[in-house]
Amino acid sequence: MLRSRLITVLTINGGVLFRTKTFTPDYRYTHNFVDGWLVDEIILLDVTRPGTAPTGATSFESVVSAVAKRSFVPLAVGGGIRSLDDARRFMALGADKVVINSGAIDRPELISEIARVYGSQCVVLSIDTRKTELGNEVFSHFGSKPSGMSASEWARQGAQLGAGEIMLNSIERDGSLEGYDIPLCREVTSAVDVPVQICGGAGAWPHFVQGILSGGASAVCTTNIYHFTETSIQSAKAFMSKAGIPVRLS
């Protein structure tokens, strides 16, 4: 039976892990856990705003390369992918999948271009949403630009174009620790046949259970790395398992 996944999203800013435990930026933190922990998948996102990386900053590419060489779990990489060449660059560094967002909103054919070369399973369409009069509206460019499309509409179109997974995020819930936006999740999981990863808002183990059982998600994501130690991954998964969700426990 296919297990539900617990995915760790690592946001990298200017070459360092964006959130850390002691406010000491150090992406090496990520190197050690990737093999020993029960994380099912890792997503590395470059969230560096253009032109803001400090001089001499570690390039995102070298972070990807370092993690790829040490992790024996699937690795998805995103942030600023706008062309097939961008995707190719990250695949060559060891990514298994690419995550695309604004690049696909600006030019939806990008989804098909990458899917044709690497297959649909390689394309994760990341969708950031915010509540507007349109319902759950899709926003691009770090949540700054409204697209005029609803989340379910864009997810459906993206899947038709060849996206193999949807990574769904609620901008309002992001970092809130209040739990995922379950109605949003349900709206999208019922609109598409591809797996949906829900992000934004997880702050306690029951939120993971809600994402899977109520939201219909195939995977639950967390970006709050500082909440995660080796024991907390086990504890989160044990909680999910007790709630009747099949997860990987060893």
């Binding site: 039976m1 296919l2 297990r3 539900s4 996944r5 099912d40 399973q121 997974e165 797996p195 990987r248």
Partner: peptide
């Protein structure tokens, strides 16, 4: 084939 409860691609951990 995509079936209820089986979204395609088949992605994740299985035995």
């Amino acid at each position: 084939d995509s079936k209820p409860g089986c979204r395609i691609p088949h992605v994740g951990w299985n035995g």
